[in-house]
Computed example of a mutant assay.
Amino acid sequence: MDKTLQTPHRLGVVDALRGFALLAIVLLHNLEHYNIYFIPESLPSWLQTIDQYVWDAMFFLLAGKAYATFSLLFGFSFYIQYHNAEKRGIDFRGRFAWRMVLLFLFAQLHALFYNGDILLLYSVVGFVLIPVCRLNDKTVFWIALILLLQPFEWGRMLYALFDSNYVINGTHFITYAESAIEATTHGTFLEVLRNNIWNGQLYSNFWQVENGRLFQTAALFMFGMLLGRRKYFIKSNRSTRAWKRILKMAILAFIPLNMLRFYVPVYISNPSILISYNVAIPSLANFTFMAILVSAFTLLWFNRGEGYKWQRTIIPYGRMSLTNYISQSIMGVCIYYGFGLGLYNSTGATATILIGLAIFMIQLTFSRYWLSKHKQGPLEYLWRQGTWIKL
Protein backbone atom coordinates (compact mmCIF):
# COMPACT_ATOMS: atom_id res chain seq x y z
CA MET A 1 0.00 0.00 0.00
CA ASP A 2 2.82 2.39 0.82
CA LYS A 3 4.37 1.67 -2.56
CA THR A 4 1.10 2.51 -4.28
CA LEU A 5 1.02 5.94 -2.65
CA GLN A 6 4.67 6.66 -3.49
CA THR A 7 4.30 6.15 -7.23
CA PRO A 8 2.89 8.69 -9.72
CA HIS A 9 -0.09 6.32 -10.15
CA ARG A 10 -3.30 8.11 -9.28
CA LEU A 11 -6.22 6.57 -7.43
CA GLY A 12 -9.00 6.55 -10.00
CA VAL A 13 -11.77 6.38 -7.40
CA VAL A 14 -10.56 9.67 -5.87
CA ASP A 15 -10.41 11.46 -9.23
CA ALA A 16 -13.85 10.11 -10.13
CA LEU A 17 -15.29 11.25 -6.80
CA ARG A 18 -13.74 14.67 -7.25
CA GLY A 19 -15.17 14.84 -10.76
CA PHE A 20 -18.71 14.05 -9.61
CA ALA A 21 -18.41 16.52 -6.73
CA LEU A 22 -17.37 19.23 -9.19
CA LEU A 23 -20.22 18.30 -11.54
CA ALA A 24 -22.65 18.71 -8.63
CA ILE A 25 -21.11 22.11 -7.82
CA VAL A 26 -21.51 23.22 -11.45
CA LEU A 27 -25.17 22.17 -11.49
CA LEU A 28 -25.90 23.98 -8.22
CA HIS A 29 -24.13 27.15 -9.38
CA ASN A 30 -26.24 27.17 -12.53
CA LEU A 31 -29.38 26.51 -10.52
CA GLU A 32 -28.56 29.60 -8.44
CA HIS A 33 -27.70 31.67 -11.53
CA TYR A 34 -24.26 32.05 -9.95
CA ASN A 35 -25.64 33.73 -6.83
CA ILE A 36 -28.33 35.87 -8.43
CA TYR A 37 -31.15 33.59 -7.17
CA PHE A 38 -33.81 34.89 -9.56
CA ILE A 39 -36.96 32.86 -10.29
CA PRO A 40 -38.69 34.06 -13.49
CA GLU A 41 -42.44 34.43 -13.15
CA SER A 42 -43.14 34.62 -16.88
CA LEU A 43 -42.73 30.87 -17.40
CA PRO A 44 -45.81 28.65 -17.96
CA SER A 45 -47.36 27.32 -14.76
CA TRP A 46 -46.62 23.69 -15.70
CA LEU A 47 -42.94 24.53 -16.17
CA GLN A 48 -42.84 26.42 -12.88
CA THR A 49 -44.18 23.28 -11.17
CA ILE A 50 -41.47 21.13 -12.76
CA ASP A 51 -38.85 23.73 -11.86
CA GLN A 52 -39.90 23.61 -8.21
CA TYR A 53 -39.51 19.83 -8.11
CA VAL A 54 -36.13 20.07 -9.83
CA TRP A 55 -34.98 22.78 -7.42
CA ASP A 56 -36.05 20.83 -4.33
CA ALA A 57 -34.55 17.56 -5.55
CA MET A 58 -31.21 19.09 -6.53
CA PHE A 59 -30.82 20.95 -3.25
CA PHE A 60 -31.76 17.90 -1.20
CA LEU A 61 -29.31 15.64 -3.03
CA LEU A 62 -26.40 18.00 -3.67
CA ALA A 63 -26.47 21.23 -1.63
CA GLY A 64 -23.81 21.05 1.07
CA LYS A 65 -22.83 17.53 0.00
CA ALA A 66 -20.84 18.44 -3.11
CA TYR A 67 -18.85 21.04 -1.23
CA ALA A 68 -18.28 18.58 1.64
CA THR A 69 -16.99 15.89 -0.74
CA PHE A 70 -14.68 18.41 -2.40
CA SER A 71 -13.35 19.43 1.03
CA LEU A 72 -12.88 15.83 2.16
CA LEU A 73 -10.78 15.09 -0.91
CA PHE A 74 -8.73 18.24 -0.35
CA GLY A 75 -7.58 16.78 2.96
CA PHE A 76 -6.90 13.44 1.28
CA SER A 77 -4.73 15.13 -1.36
CA PHE A 78 -2.76 16.86 1.38
CA TYR A 79 -1.98 13.49 2.93
CA ILE A 80 -0.78 12.03 -0.38
CA GLN A 81 1.56 15.00 -0.96
CA TYR A 82 2.80 14.98 2.64
CA HIS A 83 3.33 11.21 2.61
CA ASN A 84 5.20 11.18 -0.70
CA ALA A 85 7.43 14.07 0.39
CA GLU A 86 8.11 12.34 3.71
CA LYS A 87 9.27 9.19 1.89
CA ARG A 88 11.81 11.34 0.04
CA GLY A 89 13.02 12.86 3.29
CA ILE A 90 11.31 16.21 2.67
CA ASP A 91 9.30 18.13 5.28
CA PHE A 92 6.26 19.15 3.23
CA ARG A 93 4.77 21.51 5.81
CA GLY A 94 6.62 24.60 4.60
CA ARG A 95 5.85 23.83 0.99
CA PHE A 96 2.21 23.30 1.85
CA ALA A 97 2.05 26.69 3.56
CA TRP A 98 3.45 28.24 0.38
CA ARG A 99 0.99 26.16 -1.63
CA MET A 100 -1.86 27.75 0.34
CA VAL A 101 -0.48 31.20 -0.50
CA LEU A 102 -0.60 30.25 -4.17
CA LEU A 103 -4.15 28.94 -3.73
CA PHE A 104 -5.06 32.32 -2.22
CA LEU A 105 -3.87 33.94 -5.47
CA PHE A 106 -5.98 31.52 -7.53
CA ALA A 107 -8.90 32.46 -5.26
CA GLN A 108 -8.40 36.13 -6.12
CA LEU A 109 -8.55 35.30 -9.83
CA HIS A 110 -11.70 33.25 -9.38
CA ALA A 111 -13.40 35.77 -7.08
CA LEU A 112 -13.01 38.51 -9.68
CA PHE A 113 -15.64 36.75 -11.79
CA TYR A 114 -17.79 34.90 -9.26
CA ASN A 115 -18.80 36.00 -5.76
CA GLY A 116 -19.28 32.46 -4.48
CA ASP A 117 -15.63 31.39 -4.34
CA ILE A 118 -14.55 28.71 -1.83
CA LEU A 119 -10.83 28.71 -2.64
CA LEU A 120 -10.07 31.61 -0.30
CA LEU A 121 -11.66 29.70 2.57
CA TYR A 122 -9.62 26.64 1.62
CA SER A 123 -6.39 28.63 1.44
CA VAL A 124 -6.92 29.97 4.97
CA VAL A 125 -8.34 26.85 6.66
CA GLY A 126 -5.74 24.69 4.93
CA PHE A 127 -3.13 25.96 7.39
CA VAL A 128 -4.86 23.94 10.14
CA LEU A 129 -3.45 20.76 8.57
CA ILE A 130 0.11 21.84 9.34
CA PRO A 131 -0.04 21.52 13.15
CA VAL A 132 -2.20 18.35 13.13
CA CYS A 133 -0.44 16.35 10.40
CA ARG A 134 1.97 14.74 12.88
CA LEU A 135 -0.61 13.91 15.53
CA ASN A 136 -1.82 10.33 15.85
CA ASP A 137 -5.03 9.20 14.18
CA LYS A 138 -7.10 9.12 17.34
CA THR A 139 -6.19 12.67 18.32
CA VAL A 140 -6.90 14.01 14.83
CA PHE A 141 -10.23 12.16 14.75
CA TRP A 142 -11.44 13.71 18.00
CA ILE A 143 -10.32 17.21 17.00
CA ALA A 144 -12.15 16.82 13.69
CA LEU A 145 -15.27 15.45 15.37
CA ILE A 146 -15.43 18.35 17.83
CA LEU A 147 -15.07 20.86 14.99
CA LEU A 148 -17.71 19.03 12.96
CA LEU A 149 -20.21 19.38 15.81
CA GLN A 150 -20.01 23.18 15.50
CA PRO A 151 -18.98 23.96 19.13
CA PHE A 152 -19.19 27.71 18.55
CA GLU A 153 -22.85 27.50 17.55
CA TRP A 154 -23.76 25.27 20.51
CA GLY A 155 -21.94 27.68 22.81
CA ARG A 156 -23.94 30.59 21.41
CA MET A 157 -27.20 28.67 21.81
CA LEU A 158 -26.37 27.88 25.43
CA TYR A 159 -25.50 31.51 26.15
CA ALA A 160 -28.70 32.72 24.48
CA LEU A 161 -30.68 30.22 26.54
CA PHE A 162 -29.57 31.89 29.80
CA ASP A 163 -29.41 35.49 28.58
CA SER A 164 -32.57 36.68 26.84
CA ASN A 165 -30.84 39.93 25.85
CA TYR A 166 -28.16 38.14 23.85
CA VAL A 167 -28.77 38.67 20.13
CA ILE A 168 -27.11 36.57 17.42
CA ASN A 169 -26.82 38.24 14.04
CA GLY A 170 -26.30 35.81 11.19
CA THR A 171 -26.91 38.30 8.39
CA HIS A 172 -23.71 40.34 8.12
CA PHE A 173 -23.33 39.08 4.54
CA ILE A 174 -26.62 40.62 3.33
CA THR A 175 -25.32 44.19 2.92
CA TYR A 176 -22.54 42.97 0.65
CA ALA A 177 -24.87 40.53 -1.10
CA GLU A 178 -27.21 43.34 -2.13
CA SER A 179 -24.35 45.31 -3.65
CA ALA A 180 -23.01 42.21 -5.39
CA ILE A 181 -26.39 41.28 -6.87
CA GLU A 182 -26.93 44.80 -8.18
CA ALA A 183 -23.58 44.64 -9.97
CA THR A 184 -24.10 41.16 -11.40
CA THR A 185 -27.60 41.85 -12.71
CA HIS A 186 -27.14 45.39 -14.09
CA GLY A 187 -23.43 46.20 -14.05
CA THR A 188 -20.92 46.15 -16.86
CA PHE A 189 -18.10 43.62 -16.94
CA LEU A 190 -15.68 46.07 -15.34
CA GLU A 191 -18.24 47.02 -12.69
CA VAL A 192 -18.66 43.35 -11.77
CA LEU A 193 -14.89 42.90 -11.47
CA ARG A 194 -14.55 46.04 -9.38
CA ASN A 195 -17.44 45.09 -7.08
CA ASN A 196 -16.19 41.53 -6.62
CA ILE A 197 -12.77 42.70 -5.45
CA TRP A 198 -14.35 43.83 -2.17
CA ASN A 199 -18.11 43.37 -1.81
CA GLY A 200 -18.24 40.04 -3.62
CA GLN A 201 -15.55 38.47 -1.47
CA LEU A 202 -17.01 39.83 1.77
CA TYR A 203 -20.43 38.52 0.73
CA SER A 204 -19.07 35.05 -0.01
CA ASN A 205 -16.83 34.66 3.02
CA PHE A 206 -19.18 36.25 5.56
CA TRP A 207 -21.87 33.85 4.35
CA GLN A 208 -19.55 30.86 4.69
CA VAL A 209 -18.43 31.79 8.20
CA GLU A 210 -21.99 32.54 9.35
CA ASN A 211 -23.16 29.19 7.98
CA GLY A 212 -20.61 27.08 9.81
CA ARG A 213 -18.25 26.44 6.91
CA LEU A 214 -15.16 27.53 8.88
CA PHE A 215 -15.40 24.71 11.44
CA GLN A 216 -16.86 22.19 9.01
CA THR A 217 -14.15 22.72 6.41
CA ALA A 218 -11.38 22.20 8.96
CA ALA A 219 -13.07 18.99 10.12
CA LEU A 220 -13.48 17.69 6.58
CA PHE A 221 -9.84 18.41 5.77
CA MET A 222 -8.80 16.32 8.79
CA PHE A 223 -11.18 13.48 7.99
CA GLY A 224 -9.85 13.42 4.43
CA MET A 225 -6.30 13.22 5.77
CA LEU A 226 -7.35 10.28 7.97
CA LEU A 227 -8.87 8.49 4.97
CA GLY A 228 -5.46 8.76 3.33
CA ARG A 229 -3.62 7.51 6.39
CA ARG A 230 -5.96 4.53 6.76
CA LYS A 231 -5.69 3.84 3.01
CA TYR A 232 -9.46 3.56 2.69
CA PHE A 233 -9.43 4.48 -1.01
CA ILE A 234 -7.19 1.49 -1.79
CA LYS A 235 -9.25 -1.65 -2.25
CA SER A 236 -8.74 -4.27 0.47
CA ASN A 237 -10.88 -6.35 2.78
CA ARG A 238 -10.14 -3.84 5.55
CA SER A 239 -11.12 -0.78 3.55
CA THR A 240 -14.26 -2.46 2.18
CA ARG A 241 -15.41 -3.33 5.70
CA ALA A 242 -14.66 0.22 6.82
CA TRP A 243 -16.76 1.79 4.04
CA LYS A 244 -19.65 -0.57 4.83
CA ARG A 245 -19.52 0.54 8.47
CA ILE A 246 -19.41 4.18 7.43
CA LEU A 247 -22.41 3.66 5.15
CA LYS A 248 -24.49 2.01 7.89
CA MET A 249 -23.57 4.59 10.51
CA ALA A 250 -24.25 7.50 8.12
CA ILE A 251 -27.71 6.17 7.24
CA LEU A 252 -28.59 5.68 10.91
CA ALA A 253 -27.37 9.19 11.76
CA PHE A 254 -28.93 10.98 8.79
CA ILE A 255 -32.52 9.96 9.51
CA PRO A 256 -32.83 11.56 12.97
CA LEU A 257 -30.66 14.54 11.98
CA ASN A 258 -32.87 15.25 8.99
CA MET A 259 -35.95 15.05 11.20
CA LEU A 260 -34.34 17.46 13.69
CA ARG A 261 -33.54 19.75 10.78
CA PHE A 262 -37.10 20.03 9.48
CA TYR A 263 -39.41 19.47 12.45
CA VAL A 264 -37.75 21.14 15.45
CA PRO A 265 -37.19 24.77 14.27
CA VAL A 266 -40.92 25.61 14.42
CA TYR A 267 -40.83 25.00 18.18
CA ILE A 268 -37.86 27.34 18.83
CA SER A 269 -39.17 30.77 19.75
CA ASN A 270 -35.85 32.44 20.56
CA PRO A 271 -34.51 33.79 17.22
CA SER A 272 -30.90 33.77 18.41
CA ILE A 273 -31.09 30.09 19.34
CA LEU A 274 -32.82 29.36 16.04
CA ILE A 275 -30.03 30.95 13.98
CA SER A 276 -27.34 28.79 15.54
CA TYR A 277 -29.55 25.69 15.50
CA ASN A 278 -30.12 26.15 11.76
CA VAL A 279 -26.37 26.16 11.28
CA ALA A 280 -25.35 23.23 13.50
CA ILE A 281 -28.00 20.64 12.63
CA PRO A 282 -28.10 21.10 8.81
CA SER A 283 -24.30 21.02 8.81
CA LEU A 284 -24.35 17.60 10.49
CA ALA A 285 -27.18 16.33 8.30
CA ASN A 286 -25.32 17.34 5.14
CA PHE A 287 -22.16 15.65 6.42
CA THR A 288 -23.92 12.34 7.06
CA PHE A 289 -25.64 12.42 3.65
CA MET A 290 -22.26 13.17 2.04
CA ALA A 291 -20.84 10.14 3.88
CA ILE A 292 -23.65 8.01 2.42
CA LEU A 293 -22.89 9.19 -1.11
CA VAL A 294 -19.10 8.84 -0.83
CA SER A 295 -19.19 5.41 0.81
CA ALA A 296 -21.76 4.07 -1.67
CA PHE A 297 -19.73 5.41 -4.61
CA THR A 298 -16.51 3.88 -3.26
CA LEU A 299 -18.11 0.50 -2.55
CA LEU A 300 -19.49 0.41 -6.09
CA TRP A 301 -16.01 1.19 -7.40
CA PHE A 302 -14.47 -1.60 -5.31
CA ASN A 303 -17.19 -4.02 -6.36
CA ARG A 304 -16.22 -3.55 -10.00
CA GLY A 305 -12.48 -3.70 -9.33
CA GLU A 306 -11.52 -0.54 -11.18
CA GLY A 307 -14.90 1.12 -11.16
CA TYR A 308 -17.85 1.03 -13.52
CA LYS A 309 -17.59 2.71 -16.89
CA TRP A 310 -19.88 5.57 -15.81
CA GLN A 311 -17.52 6.20 -12.90
CA ARG A 312 -14.31 6.04 -14.94
CA THR A 313 -15.74 8.35 -17.61
CA ILE A 314 -15.50 11.39 -15.36
CA ILE A 315 -11.92 10.81 -14.15
CA PRO A 316 -10.36 13.42 -16.52
CA TYR A 317 -12.81 16.01 -15.19
CA GLY A 318 -11.72 15.32 -11.62
CA ARG A 319 -8.03 15.40 -12.50
CA MET A 320 -8.44 18.96 -13.75
CA SER A 321 -10.65 20.12 -10.88
CA LEU A 322 -8.93 23.47 -10.27
CA THR A 323 -8.95 24.42 -13.94
CA ASN A 324 -12.55 23.29 -14.37
CA TYR A 325 -13.75 24.92 -11.15
CA ILE A 326 -12.47 28.34 -12.14
CA SER A 327 -13.35 28.11 -15.84
CA GLN A 328 -16.94 26.96 -15.21
CA SER A 329 -17.52 30.11 -13.17
CA ILE A 330 -16.18 32.30 -15.98
CA MET A 331 -18.45 30.53 -18.46
CA GLY A 332 -21.44 30.69 -16.12
CA VAL A 333 -21.27 34.38 -15.31
CA CYS A 334 -21.02 35.19 -19.02
CA ILE A 335 -24.24 33.23 -19.54
CA TYR A 336 -26.29 34.61 -16.64
CA TYR A 337 -24.93 38.02 -15.61
CA GLY A 338 -26.21 41.29 -17.02
CA PHE A 339 -23.01 42.10 -18.93
CA GLY A 340 -23.30 38.76 -20.78
CA LEU A 341 -26.36 36.96 -22.10
CA GLY A 342 -28.37 37.93 -19.02
CA LEU A 343 -30.23 34.61 -18.90
CA TYR A 344 -30.81 34.84 -15.15
CA ASN A 345 -34.21 36.50 -15.76
CA SER A 346 -35.54 33.94 -18.25
CA THR A 347 -34.27 30.51 -17.13
CA GLY A 348 -35.88 28.35 -14.50
CA ALA A 349 -34.41 25.36 -12.68
CA THR A 350 -34.90 22.87 -15.51
CA ALA A 351 -33.24 25.10 -18.10
CA THR A 352 -30.32 25.94 -15.82
CA ILE A 353 -29.65 22.23 -15.17
CA LEU A 354 -29.48 21.64 -18.92
CA ILE A 355 -27.09 24.58 -19.28
CA GLY A 356 -25.01 23.20 -16.43
CA LEU A 357 -24.80 19.81 -18.14
CA ALA A 358 -23.73 21.53 -21.37
CA ILE A 359 -20.92 23.35 -19.51
CA PHE A 360 -19.89 20.03 -17.98
CA MET A 361 -19.78 18.25 -21.35
CA ILE A 362 -17.67 21.02 -22.86
CA GLN A 363 -15.24 20.87 -19.95
CA LEU A 364 -15.13 17.07 -19.90
CA THR A 365 -14.32 16.99 -23.62
CA PHE A 366 -11.59 19.59 -23.15
CA SER A 367 -10.21 17.71 -20.13
CA ARG A 368 -9.91 14.49 -22.12
CA TYR A 369 -8.20 16.29 -24.96
CA TRP A 370 -5.79 18.20 -22.70
CA LEU A 371 -4.80 15.15 -20.63
CA SER A 372 -4.14 13.16 -23.80
CA LYS A 373 -1.28 15.59 -24.44
CA HIS A 374 -0.30 16.74 -20.93
CA LYS A 375 0.08 15.12 -17.51
CA GLN A 376 -1.86 17.85 -15.68
CA GLY A 377 -4.40 20.57 -16.33
CA PRO A 378 -3.01 24.06 -17.03
CA LEU A 379 -3.77 25.55 -13.60
CA GLU A 380 -2.81 22.32 -11.85
CA TYR A 381 0.56 22.50 -13.61
CA LEU A 382 1.10 26.11 -12.54
CA TRP A 383 0.14 25.26 -8.97
CA ARG A 384 2.51 22.31 -8.82
CA GLN A 385 5.39 24.20 -10.43
CA GLY A 386 4.82 27.10 -8.05
CA THR A 387 4.70 24.75 -5.05
CA TRP A 388 8.12 23.26 -5.81
CA ILE A 389 9.82 26.38 -7.07
CA LYS A 390 13.38 26.71 -5.79
CA LEU A 391 13.46 29.58 -3.34
Rank of each mutant, 00 (worst) to 15 (best):
residue 7 T to L: 09
residue 30 N to S: 04
residue 33 H to N: 15
residue 42 S to D: 08
residue 44 P to C: 11
residue 57 A to P: 05
residue 59 F to A: 07
residue 62 L to F: 14
residue 68 A to G: 01
residue 72 L to R: 00
residue 83 H to N: 06
residue 84 N to C: 02
residue 85 A to K: 12
residue 86 E to N: 13
residue 91 D to A: 13
residue 94 G to A: 12
residue 96 F to V: 03
residue 97 A to G: 06
residue 106 F to T: 11
residue 108 Q to F: 11
residue 109 L to Y: 05
residue 111 A to C: 04
residue 113 F to V: 03
residue 114 Y to F: 15
residue 120 L to Y: 02
residue 127 F to R: 00
residue 138 K to A: 06
residue 138 K to G: 05
residue 139 T to I: 07
residue 144 A to Y: 08
residue 144 A to V: 03
residue 149 L to P: 08
residue 159 Y to M: 01
residue 162 F to M: 10
residue 166 Y to S: 06
residue 170 G to N: 07
residue 193 L to S: 07
residue 197 I to Y: 05
residue 199 N to P: 13
residue 210 E to C: 14
residue 210 E to V: 02
residue 229 R to P: 07
residue 229 R to H: 10
residue 236 S to L: 03
residue 242 A to W: 15
residue 254 F to T: 14
residue 264 V to M: 13
residue 269 S to V: 10
residue 287 F to S: 15
residue 288 T to R: 04
residue 289 F to T: 12
residue 301 W to V: 03
residue 302 F to I: 15
residue 303 N to K: 15
residue 307 G to N: 05
residue 316 P to F: 01
residue 320 M to E: 02
residue 322 L to W: 00
residue 325 Y to K: 04
residue 344 Y to I: 05
residue 350 T to Q: 06
residue 357 L to W: 09
residue 359 I to Y: 03
residue 367 S to P: 10
residue 369 Y to E: 14
residue 371 L to Y: 02
residue 374 H to W: 12
residue 383 W to C: 04
residue 390 K to F: 12
residue 390 K to C: 04
